[in-house]
Structures are given as structure tokens and as C-alpha cells.
Amino acid sequence: MRLDLRIPVGALFALIGVLLGVYGGATLGQPGTTPTGVPINLVWGLVLLAFGTAMLTLARRARRAARGHANPDAARGPGIT
């Protein structure tokens, strides 16, 4: 079993994205949260979430493709995946 690095990377970014985005959304409009005028916590939380989701989607797609690829040759046993 080989670990696809996109899974832990995607999960970490998505989790931090959710945490930051929810915090940014909840504190929207409160003093001290937008030093530059941009609700950066919310925006950057969404960016991180998008990146994490993209990584997880790619990993999922690769796993599906590998499974589809492996099935016809399943008679040859493990080791080829």
C-alpha cells in the first residue's frame, strides 16, 4: 500500500481552510479583523479549502483510475497496483 501524499496534504489544507474560513465568517465586521479592508481570514480560508479539495479530488480520481486499471488484471494477484 503506497500512501498518496495528496490525501494528507489535501486534508490538512481543507481542515485549516474550514477553521480559518468559519472564524473569518463569524468575526466578519468586528473591529481588528480587516486591517487592509479585505476580509482576509474568510478569503484565505476559502482559498485553502479550494486547494485542499482539489488535492483530495485528484487523489480520489487517481485511486479510481488505478482500481479500474487493476481489475482486469486481478487474476495476476497483488503487487501490480
Partner: peptide, 11 residues
């Protein structure tokens, strides 16, 4: 410190 609010500053 100047441009990040609490939250992103921690990150």
C-alpha cells in the same frame, strides 16, 4: 504583524 488580523496571523 501589520497586515494580518488574528487568525491569518497565527497561520
Amino acid at each position: 504583524v501589520h497586515f494580518f488580523p488574528a487568525g491569518l496571523l497565527g497561520l
